[in-house]
Amino acid sequence: MKTITPLLSGRWLLLVCLLLTTSCELFEYHPYDTDAFDQTGVNQSNIEEIEAQDDLSDTLRFAFMGDTQRFYDETEDFVNDLNNRDDVDFVIHGGDITDFGLSKEYKWIYDIMKNLNVPFVSLIGNHDVIGHGKNVYNEIYGDFNFTFISHRTRFICLNTNALEFNYSTPVPDFDYMLGFVNDSADIDQTIVVMHAAPYDEQFNNNAVLMFNYIVEQYKNVRFCLHAHQHKLNESDFFDNGIMYYGCDDMESRSYLLFTVTPDSYNFTVEYY
């Protein structure tokens, strides 16, 4: 057996001490742990920012994207691209923030998205539910269903990942949805946002007609938005003129840019 000078052993011990004193986040109990996150209530604080914006003009402009999943570099490029423009009020992430529902993934995507110059809100996607992912979503972003108003427009963001919740939680939550039928807020129009569209395998398709029935009751529904399908999509699912627009995933390096005025709306697919 070899003999090494005691000097070296001192160095080894020094290295160990150095490693042990580095930040505690290196000590992971499990990849699905609901870590203590620096940032909590992200949707709520961003909504406050959105609602505090000067929205006196009658033109609403926002970006809709989704399915960031494992496309970290592409998401970073998206943030850089969006920061280069000054005509967008806010960004909506349509869900599937993560690919595996892991805590670290939530953190990685948040660390990229937080660099947006404009506020952003994120919906929960089916991948985000896996393991303890749903608890991590609650911790970082907040409630599964949420709403905000911008430019006299009511945005209703809904959890539609029924397959994932396996009946343990009402998905879609009709009680929540019915709360906006006779909206007491001073609004002109409504936009409904979800991760999985009606008739998707994630959606509770037994409830699809009821879902549509409630959406139809909302004040001046302009259109609905969804992500999840990893391709651009345009559908009038119920032949009632309420269009559903789906965005592509981040891998495609594209997002939808919506411009909504009282008389009309249009959107473009922006590639970066």
Partner: peptide, 24 residues
Amino acid sequence: NDLYLISAVGNKTITLRDIIGLSF
């Protein structure tokens, strides 16, 4: 672990420092 490695592959945004954990 496997899922961290899969996540890091092809992403320069995710570094070695991001995917390792320490134990003793």
